[in-house]
Amino acid sequence: MEFGILVNEGPYTHQASDTAYLFARTAIEKGHKVPRVFFYHDGVNNSTRLATPPQDDRNVNSRWSKLAEEHAVDLVVCVAAAQRRGINDDVLAPGFRISGLGQLVEMGIQHDRLVTFGD
């Protein structure tokens, strides 16, 4: 089954991004597909490569990059939400790309399920 995932909050302040990641990773481990994760609202803050959390903490942003690399997950950041929050191509972590809200709608149309994680 194909799951689309929508992440509406940034890393660290809310658990939403952690839950979304663990859901996505588990779905893939169980043999499902997660073709795309869409980041909206403050969720766009998951995409910056400039985040440097302490050594003993998880790195939410690079964890997404690793998932994208290993399982061909398309990490899409909403352009309008990103521009409002100072996220552009110069700061993107590997695996992320900036595009329009149409990519979110497409996910809803094409995938079997759309699951939202937010606050």
Binding site: F3, A27, K30, V115
Partner: peptide, 16 residues
């Protein structure tokens, strides 16, 4: 989390 994935798969739609 595996059970969470199963629940989403088993139901035709979900609402957060």
């Amino acid at each position: 989390y595996g059970g969470f994935v199963d629940l989403v798969a088993e139901h035709s739609n979900c609402q957060s």
